[in-house]
Design a binder for these strands. Structure first.
Lengths: 153, 153
DNA sequence: TTCTCTTACGGGGGGCGTAACGATG
DNA sequence: CATCGTTACGCCCCCCGTAAGAGAA
């Protein structure tokens, strides 16, 4: 069972015809015949009833159609979500800030501007001393920190 | 995004290493490097951070991992469901029966035995005269019928 | 005869494996 | 130097398109 086969099968199910489906998905008609057959062999189940005029779905075919539509929808949903995540438009940032810096106006306005620009990014701000921040940055539980650094770090 | 790529990626995510994953899925290690790279290009997102010792997931990678597990689970669920459906172990049967035949003991016991044998098959029994049954059998809204037939049918 | 699905066959893209390379602790 | 990920390259499978075949209205 491959996404491509499901896409073809959905077209066949919705048009009630392998020929019509082949035009819809821009693939030669024998290719669809073959992929549907392979899908049936893979699932061990007849999915279509072939008539002289087009095809109709078996019970199993109807069930697969419903599932396949959901499956492809899920795939596009994942795509869009990952695209946003990858661009940093959504996500989560864990930020350490020393207590003293929390009250610095520049820091507060920086956070505010970031929130305005990327409203889908969740912020977790941890008030922490510089030492613990460094430790958590190293172990990855913080993404960034505003803190005092010794010269050597 | 293909099922195969998701399967590979899940193995990589769970082992934290492309090499280890390649042994787990019985595929040469460069093939996994390539498929993961193709998956990243396809989604337009970095999924892994490569270190000298293995790999770790980016935020997008973690998100994809969760979704991918569900997606593959869904696929196997569909497989098993369709397998049962294809064997007639579950499904629905629409049956027409003439009112007179409903009271024939043989008919009642036939239905009872069928129900016992295939408890997952839902029955819809329609009390119908022979004429309407024939009509609905032809249009497909009935799967079978118990009725009187003229000689020519 | 026409519309449909199926079968046959040859070409091409892509996935995989082997081998060589690069980087890091 | 051992281990891991990447790059290079050739083979082969499989998907596709074209062409021909079969069956039903």
């Amino acid at each position: 069972m491959e996404f491509r086969q499901l896409r073809y099968f959905i077209a066949v199910a919705e048009t009630g015809s392998i020929s019509a489906a082949s035009r819809q998905v821009n693939v030669a008609q024998p290719a669809l015949t073959r992929q549907v057959r392979l899908l049936e062999e893979d699932l061990g189940t007849r999915l279509l009833e072939r008539h002289a005029r087009g095809v109709s779905l078996t019970v199993a075919g109807q069930a697969l159609y419903d599932e396949a539509v959901q499956l492809l929808d899920t795939r596009t949903r994942i795509r869009t979500r990952l695209a946003s995540l990858g661009q940093g438009l959504i996500g989560k940032v864990s930020l350490g800030v020393t207590v003293t810096h929390l009250w610095v106006p520049e820091v507060a306005s920086l956070l505010r501007r970031y929130r305005d620009r990327y409203p889908q990014v969740a912020f977790e701000v941890f008030p922490l001393l510089s030492g613990p921040q460094l430790e958590r940055l190293r172990e990855g539980s913080l993404d960034a920190g505003i803190l005092y650094l010794d010269g050597g770090e």
